[in-house]
């Protein structure tokens, strides 16, 4: 069973994405900030990470930067889920950190599931 890690400080968002992915047969773990997620990732490497940008303690951009510095976590697919999509330098993120893309809030859980399925199918 593929493991998806969700990271967002908004519980309602976490829960919605969690439900959609769980129903589709994924194992989902959720964390309220980047620091908690990073610690969990270092314990157990997920198959994919979906994270918000603005979070307490550690934001999504800092999280992906830290992940790419570590050899073990360098290649985990990383997707941003944020309301600040248009303010981010998406091309730079793609090039420098291999960020798959940015899903803007409000988002469609269906779309998230679709991206997860395509990504994981390609990485198999």
């Amino acid at each position: 069973m593929k493991h998806i890690l969700l990271c967002d400080d908004d519980v309602t968002i976490l829960r919605a994405a969690e439900i959609k992915l769980t129903r589709a047969g994924y194992r989902v773990t959720t964390y309220p900030d980047g620091q908690a997620a990073l610690e969990a990732i270092q314990r157990e490497l997920p198959d994919m990470i979906i994270s918000d940008c603005q979070m307490p303690r550690m934001g999504g951009l800092e999280l992906v930067r830290k992940l790419r510095e570590d050899e073990r976590t360098r290649d985990v697919p990383f997707l941003l889920l944020t309301g600040k999509g248009f303010e981010l330098p998406i091309e730079d993120l793609r090039r420098d950190y291999g960020v798959l893309g940015v899903i803007g809030k409000p988002f469609s859980p269906r779309e998230v599931l679709q991206i997860v399925e395509t990504t994981l199918a390609a990485s198999v």
Binding site: D10, T12, I13, A16, I19, R23, G83, P106, S108, P109
Partner: peptide, 28 residues
């Protein structure tokens, strides 16, 4: 304007996500 729209997006995201879950029959 940027902060106001960002703050509005959060509840809107919840509404949209849960409406879609309901529509997709994800409530078991």
């Amino acid at each position: 304007v940027s902060s106001a729209s960002h703050e509005m997006k959060a509840p809107l995201a919840g509404i949209k996500a849960y409406v879609e879950l309901l529509a997709d029959g994800d409530a078991e």
